[in-house]
Design a protein around this nucleic acid. Structure first.
Lengths: 136, 136
DNA sequence: ATAGGTGCAAATGGTTTGCGAAAAC
DNA sequence: GTTTTCGCAAACCATTTGCACCTAT
C-alpha cells in the first residue's frame, strides 16, 4: 500500500479516503457507489473529486477499470493475478474467475495477429448456479 | 436476410434502411455513425429511431452489442461464428479474431463455476502490428 | 381501422470541466 | 509562496421518453 501511495502526490485527504474505501470494499465499485460510501465517512467529498481521482488512479495503474454493466464503468484495486468476470443476468452478482487458458489465448493472439496485448477485458454474461436452478 | 426480417414487424422503411445499412457497412457501428450513414440515404430518419431500433434488433437477436469503446456501444450483424475483438490503442482499428480456446474457456467456466454462459464479451486492447513498429 | 412506429424536443444519467476558494508541498 | 486539488454548478454526451402525427398491416 505504501508503494502505491507514493505515486499519488499530493496525497490529499480525499485521495486517502477514496483509496481506503476502494481497498476496504474489495469488490467492484462504480463511481456513484464509491461516492456514496466515501461520503458516509466524510460528507465534504464531492462526486467530481471521485471521478477525477478514479481517472488518476487508473492512469497511475493503481486501479483497474472494467465494463461490467451497460452505461457505466466499475473499478477495483489492481492485483497481481489476472482475473476476469462473470455477470449474472438475473441477480446481477459478479463472480471472478481465473484460467490458464486466458494466458494461452493472449499468447496465441499476439503470435497469430502480430498484436501486442496490453489489457484483457473478458466478461461473460449468463446465469449463476442459484438463478439457474430457480429458472427450472 | 428474409428470415431475419420476418422477426421485425411492422417492417417500416426506416427499419429496412437501418438493416440494409448495418449489413452493408459490415463492421462495427455505433448509433451516431449508423445515424450518419442512414441519414445520407434518407434525410427523414431521426436519431431516436436509430436508438429504438438498435434496441429492438438486439432484443430480437439480429445484431450483437459490443463494448469496444468507453462510453458507447457498437453493433454488428450477428453471424454464425463466434468471434472477439482486438482494439488498437494507437490507431483505433478494430481487428476480429477467433480461437478454439474461447470455446474451451466457456466450457471450463461452466463446469468449474456452475455458471450458464449466455454471452462472451472479450476485448483485448493493445497495439496492432503497424503501430507497434512505429513506436520503436 | 387500428396497433404500433416515427420525428421532434425535452428529459435523463453518467461523466467532465471552469472557476474561485482551500490545501499540499 | 507556489502549484495543484477541491467543491460547486453548469456543461457535455450518449441514450431514453412523452406526445402528436403517420404508416404498415
Amino acid at each position: 500500500m505504501q508503494i502505491l501511495r507514493m505515486k499519488i502526490r499530493p496525497l490529499t485527504q480525499q485521495r486517502r479516503l477514496l483509496l481506503d474505501t476502494i481497498r476496504e470494499v474489495g469488490r467492484h465499485l462504480d463511481a456513484k457507489e464509491l461516492y456514496r460510501r466515501a461520503n458516509e465517512k466524510d460528507e465534504r467529498i464531492s462526486l467530481a473529486t471521485v471521478y477525477r481521482n478514479l481517472r488518476l488512479f487508473r492512469d497511475q495503474g493503481i486501479i483497474e477499470e472494467r465494463h461490467l454493466r451497460r452505461g457505466c464503468c466499475c473499478y477495483e484495486m489492481k492485483r497481481s493475478g489476472e482475473h476476469q468476470h462473470l455477470v449474472c443476468l438475473s441477480c446481477g452478482r459478479v463472480i471472478e474467475f481465473k484460467s490458464p487458458l486466458i494466458h494461452k489465448l493472449v499468447t496465441e493472439v499476439q503470435r497469430k495477429n502480430r498484436f501486442l496485448v496490453a489489457r484483457v477485458d473478458l466478461c461473460m454474461e449468463g446465469y449463476c448456479h442459484e438463478c439457474k436452478e430457480e429458472r427450472k
